[in-house]
Design a binder for these strands. Structure first.
Lengths: 216, 216, 216, 216
DNA sequence: AATGAATGAGGGTTCATTCAT
DNA sequence: TATGAATGAACCCTCATTCAT
């Protein structure tokens, strides 16, 4: 439990810390971990290198904090979702739409996760906070699937993990690999129309994925 | 076998160039673009910094060559696929299995593409070679889909681009984000059993995706 | 004496900056611009490469500062000259002697200017400070000439610029090209006697140059 | 005495050598000695680094050759001068005009000499050839002065070395320091009119310098 | 809480030069 | 005669980090 500090000095300090964190997200997203300069971050934060070390100890630990913060923000947003479990199909599609839109609107989330994976998750392993937060990964999804199964709408032989991966894959990859894909496909995937079409496609696809096997 | 150049020196030169390229793939995959040191690469290649510049001009252009080479290797492997177009369902599943297995066995392909996307595709834009190679992106997929449509097995209202993205998403993301996913899901996605299960799931899912609309 | 900054640290900083500047003058004079190594300068200054960039930004900008400093020193020395305008002939010869002696005693001034000219004045163009300082080029000379003209001692049809160039040529070249000249003339121009003779010659020559036309 | 080689191969070789020498003059003039890259020179000569070493041994020795060649060219041109010793005043002014024009038209001569002096004449010292050539330094001047003295036109108390230095100073400095001078004087010394005025001034001045003392 | 001064190690890159054919 | 391949040292400059106040 965190005891909030009072007093103007303490508040200023909090603001400085917050500015540095925001700057770090921006810079790491733009330049990667190795490419992201401590100096760029402190300048972006209207602060100086020394403060960065004062609050975060090292570049590496700063990145861990960025990772935690980024994931926490996603969790918070997801937590605000109001899903109607009595209509599992709709709820599932709402969730897909939410995740898709979150990724589209938060390229820093996508980028930070990609960076972390290129580093084989070494920073994530340093964070107990992150382990706690990520326990919730399928937490929102599970009740939807179970409700759908109860109503006989969804397959019984389903692995919740697969559903999670399916949704994440379809939402993430389009955004994470947008640049090479646009080049390879000869289409601008950042185009609003393209995005809408894709959401339509994956929304339908996810449903097909959880529906009882096709008779063929 | 084609011997491009004659003379021992010329052959050694080709080998030196090739060793540097291989080393670069390894190092960039391991350390990213900014993190990948020119020095590490030349040492890994049993050469020296100067030769890297002799053959590739700059670190940046070396990365462009890595990108081209990596993609070309994938294209070559794909080109060797023998798909039976008279059995579109099987052909599609064979293609999915091929792509999945390629990504699993070539983490460098996945990593290099992720790195390039974090750099907003700036290196890909520098490469005419890459533009040529990538023209083939949906080349293998298209005849399968068209054959399936002719036989009435696949939907008519399908966007080939969506099928490509679907397959790529489902194969790529699992591998690219394996580390954070393993941590978040509490399962080791590098596990052979997990991989097999996922291939089964997506192989089925892709089929569902191209099959005529569900009656609900 | 003006203490610009307070605090020991700040004073040490000023000293560090000054040491680097002095070292740069020495090294550039000895090795030229391209030949002058950043590393040699920082070592000469009992500092390290990083500080050079901390205070001067780049080797190029350091050279600009060297240029400014060198010229400013000359200007300061010239400013201290007390010339008796009521005796224009003496004043002119005093000025010639001053300039000659300054060049002899400050080979770095001569060398830095030569280097800059070999670079086609590219660094001087970057310096507003230098443009300001150089506005004074003929400032000391002009009143002497005008006083001489008023007394009917000097020619009326004289171009002040020519007088300036005459003096500078005769003082500078002997010093700037001393090495090849010594070799070509078979005499050591660094010899005190030679220098004294030359000063006698040019002191007389300058006077002849400003005196009314010869009747021939 | 040089025995010229015959045969096409030998001629090509001579041409290659000559091209490299010309390229070296150009590059050293433009970039200085340290700044002049072996690579730039061989490329400028449409040759390759290895040939430069084949013909000249090292960058340093190439510069010595450049120095010799440059000075030899001046000597040759001076040798072609036809001066009428029966008219010493005219002859002296012709010589001044020749030297002035040579410096104006051969900036590489001026630059190479300045570079060599910044290096304290270290290359000139390596060259016996140069010592031989430079023996002639005052060779053209001497008969003129002596003729003038015989006719009672020139001072008897004159040091030929001073006359040489006077002329060289007045012709050289204007050209060698043209860039900073233009900046300091606020006039473009490369301007044809300015050049003509200066030649007029120094032509007269040189004469004043060798004329018997003024009665004042 | 905040900041200028300082640093050693290392960044990508280029240097003049030599080797082997 | 001519040239591609190779090299080690050094180039200018920047890195993440710490010191002293």
């Amino acid at each position: 439990m965190v005891i909030k500090k009072t007093g103007i000095r303490a508040q200023q300090a909090d603001q400085t810390r917050a500015r540095i964190l925001q700057a770090a997200i921006k810079v790491f997203t733009r330049d990667g971990y190795s490419g992201g300069r401590v100096d760029s971050i402190s300048r972006e934060a209207d602060s100086n290198d020394r403060m960065l070390y004062y609050y975060f100890g090292s570049k590496e630990h700063l990145f861990v904090c960025v990772l935690e913060h980024t994931y926490e923000q996603f969790n918070k947003a997801e937590g605000k979702l109001k899903l109607d479990l009595s209509a599992p199909v709709q709820a599932l599609q709402d969730l897909v739409a939410f995740i898709w839109n979150y990724y589209v609107k938060h390229p820093e989330f996508v980028a930070i996760l990609s960076i972390e994976n290129l580093h084989k998750g070494k920073h994530a392993k340093q964070s107990g906070e992150l382990r706690r937060l990520s326990g919730e990964a399928v937490g929102v999804l599970r009740p939807i699937i179970e409700a759908g199964q109860l109503q006989g709408l969804f397959r019984e032989d389903i692995d919740i993990k697969h559903v999670y991966l399916m949704i994440a894959s379809l939402c993430y990859f389009y955004n994470s690999n947008r640049h090479t894909l646009s080049s390879f496909l000869g289409e601008d995937l950042a185009d609003k129309g393209q995005q809408k079409d894709w959401l339509g496609f994956i929304s339908d696809l996810v449903l097909r994925g959880v529906t009882p096997p096709i008779q063929r």
